Simulated assay, not measured.
Amino acid sequence: MTTELLKPEAFDAQQYFERIYARPVILEAKKLSQVFGTGKAQRTVLNQLDLKIHKREFICVIGPSGCGKSTFSRVVAGLDGYSSGEILVDGQPIHGPSPERGMVFQGYTLFPWKTVKENVMFGPKMKGQSHASAEAHAREWINIIGLEKYENHYPNELSGGMKQRVAIARALVNEPKILLMDEPFGALDPYTRQKMQRHLMDLWQNIDITIIFVTHDMDEAILLADRIVALKANPGEIKEIIEVDLPRPRSPELLLTPEFKRLRERVDFLVHAQEDELDPALENLPKIPRMTQVSTTK
Rank of each mutant, 00 (worst) to 15 (best):
T2N: 14
L5E: 12
P8G: 07
E9Q: 14
F11G: 00
Q15A: 15
Y16L: 09
F17S: 09
R19E: 15
R19C: 03
R19T: 15
E28A: 08
K30S: 12
K31G: 12
L32Q: 06
F36N: 01
L46A: 10
E57Y: 09
G63L: 10
R74W: 01
V75M: 13
L79D: 08
S83I: 08
G85V: 05
D90I: 00
M103N: 00
F105L: 07
L110D: 04
L110F: 12
K117A: 13
E118K: 13
E118A: 13
K127E: 11
S130M: 05
A132H: 06
A132K: 14
S133L: 06
H137A: 15
W141M: 06
K149W: 03
L158F: 07
S159F: 11
G161Y: 07
K163S: 04
R165Q: 10
A171G: 12
V173Y: 02
I178A: 04
D182M: 11
Y191R: 11
R193A: 09
M196A: 07
Q197R: 12
Q197W: 01
Q197I: 03
R198G: 10
H199E: 15
L203M: 14
D208F: 07
T210S: 03
H216E: 13
D217A: 11
D226F: 03
I228W: 03
I228Y: 05
I228N: 06
A230Y: 04
P235N: 07
G236F: 08
I238Y: 06
E240S: 10
E243N: 14
E243P: 02
V244P: 01
V244D: 04
D245M: 11
L246E: 04
R248C: 01
L254G: 05
T257K: 13
R262Y: 00
D268G: 04
E277M: 04
L282A: 12
P286T: 11
K287M: 08
S295A: 15
T297G: 08
